[in-house]
Write a protein that binds this DNA or RNA. Structure first.
Lengths: 357, 357
DNA sequence: TTGAAAGCGTTACCAA
DNA sequence: TTGGTAACGCTTTCAA
């Protein structure tokens, strides 16, 4: 493990000065350095497989090219990390790297995570949450360009901007598919009533009914929850009715809730989707796609959310505006406001036609 | 967002030189600096809320205090990130930070991920995989102290060390619990036959039978797979027998496989665990604990694996051997060899007594 | 007890 | 066209 080559080494091998090496390798060679020297420098650099020291660059440029990501449980938890993957892909493509810190849902650690990141001189900050929710933005986040992904500023709009799934649209789109399949007796097994995602999806459901000229069946709304057991309990209750009164489709809070619903149906001797259809939400990998039957579900655009958030964030970081020798000040316009991203409905089979009586 | 205070600022405010500030704040003040000056310096530092610039420190100390983690899909995927959480907790406690890079299961990106990390001058490297598997160690990993978590070097032992779950023990322990509950007709719905975790667990199963003085029922082994659909298919076949020939318990490859098994049982009108018991593996959060019935399962010690791996790794990093002014050379002893970590069996109810005929 | 200076690896300005 | 030098912020040795 010999020491890595420095610009000094390259200069010596090429028989020029350090400054010449710097100029040439950064593309400022033409018009400054004899083309013959340039060639020699490039050859020497390649021979020594010279790479500028990122740490020295950070110090010199006052820019680390690291984006700090704080998350409540996206990294540590058993949840889809696609928001971060999407964000990372965009960052990587621009020569940045993401440094993720997970608070494991301990709000006490929020501020210290931000502080750690700031101490490391990250160029910008992102806060990512597992589920859509309001966020008490941790102190310190205002000290760098920042954006929220899958959460929104508790102080209201006009503060930190965010990128969110378009839940209202998603709720409406789901209903459009269900109505389109001919169903009219629908049960809504929703998330907790005070949960923003549950509220927005319900709003979307209502909207789609109105748009279809149908009255919304308020008494078909059954607050359930996000877990298998929640879906099981709610579905068990809802399906305990005669065939002619029983809903023909269960719109579930998410895919795990849908798994519970299918279990409940099976326990009652009902087949899905022959006797009753079940629709999920999220398109959770390895759940929705491998469930029996595979779940028809509204896919959450997690990757796109991460990508969009990082794109907006990087627009505020000087060095990411490619070859930005100018403007060393962060430009925070474009960081405000909410951006809503739409998912797409994935029809896999758990949504079937209306069963004949 | 005014510029952060530097040691220079502190020195000026305290009326001393930069070097004095550095000495005092690093604990080398006694015997060098007048205690009165020391006090003044500390006050000034606090007043300006001075924090040494991490980037400058990295450059100066030739140590970034960043540990690079490459993973195949732990960050981006829908899987439990507890290995990384465990590793990160240990690192954080010693003043390190982890920089995770996910290849999204594209082996082509392995080497470039390592290169990116090395370019950033991480002090050490860890490779983490979602499932236990053999790893073709990417080129470049030998350039820094390195360790593997949940995977092992394809070149055999004696190369890169690793920390792994003790699958043989886990397989045996599971069987001990099942036998202890009185079951004798056991069906093994295993993972793919060529999968190391499946092989080791099976080895453990055999061992436990032998230890109990029982012959191992080789024809009760049914290669299934890791997904819900795999468990459903295998369990459907296995349970299609008369009550007196049917197994009384299904040992599943993992929790999702167990979900499939429960679905299959329900489809046949069988209750779990009244008519047939089902045992999972992994103790997957939000699956095992919220399943109906909640799954009895062998918990994978993911967090402990991450913690153990990071502990061993940091032992090889100079600055982590607290206040190590000496030995600037990495000490790679202790990085070789395999370390096996045991999980624990979690009994939640899906494992019941043997049903009466 | 203190201050000055070197060095970590870069880049960029300014003379020559 | 080129090379010397300052600066980024810090630690540590050496001389005063």
């Amino acid at each position: 493990m010999q020491r890595k080559a420095t610009a000094q080494d390259v200069a010596k091998l090429a028989g020029v000065s350090r400054s010449a090496v710097s100029l040439v390798l950064n593309g400022h060679g033409d018009g400054n350095i004899a083309s013959e020297s340039q060639e020699r420098i490039r050859r020497a650099a390649k021979e020594l497989s010279y790479k500028p020291n990122a740490v020295a660059l950070s110090l010199r440029n006052q820019q680390t090219r690291v984006i700090g990501i704080v998350s409540d449980r996206v990294i540590s938890g058993p949840v889809d990390g696609n928001i971060i993957a999407g964000a990372d892909a965009v960052a990587r493509e621009k020569g940045f790297v993401t440094l993720g810190l997970d608070t494991e849902e301990d709000a006490q650690r929020d501020a210290s995570a931000v502080e750690t990141l700031l101490d490391r001189h990250v160029d910008a900050l992102m806060y990512v949450t597992v589920g859509l929710r309001e966020l008490m933005v941790p102190t310190g986040m205002e000290k760098a360009p920042a954006i929220l992904a899958n959460c929104f500023d508790s102080r209201g709009p006009g503060h930190l901007g965010s990128v969110l799934p378009d839940e209202v649209w998603g709720g409406a789109e789901t209903v459009r598919h269900v109505l389109g399949a001919g169903h009219r007796r629908i049960a809504f097994l929703t998330g907790p009533v005070d949960h923003p995602a549950a509220q927005r999806r319900l709003e979307g459901h209502r909207f789609a009914f109105a748009a279809a000229g149908l009255p919304f069946p308020e008494d078909a709304v059954h607050p359930a929850g996000w877990d298998i057991s929640d879906g099981f309990a709610a579905a068990s209750a809802v399906l305990a009715a005669t065939a002619e009164n029983r809903p023909t489709v269960l719109l579930c809070a998410n895919d795990r809730c849908a798994v519970g619903a299918v279990l409940a149906a099976r326990a009652l001797g009902l087949d899905v989707p022959r006797d009753v259809s079940v629709v999920g939400y999220d398109d959770e990998e390895r759940i929705a796609d491998f469930m029996v039957p595979a779940l028809s579900t509204m896919a959450l655009p997690l990757r796109e959310i991460g990508a969009a958030a990082m794109t907006r964030l990087l627009a505020a970081v000087p060095g990411a505006r490619r070859k930005a020798t100018a403007g060393l000040q962060p430009d925070r316009s474009g960081l405000a406001g909410e951006e809503l991203i739409r998912g797409r409905f994935v029809d896999r089979g758990s949504l079937g036609p209306v069963p004949p009586l």
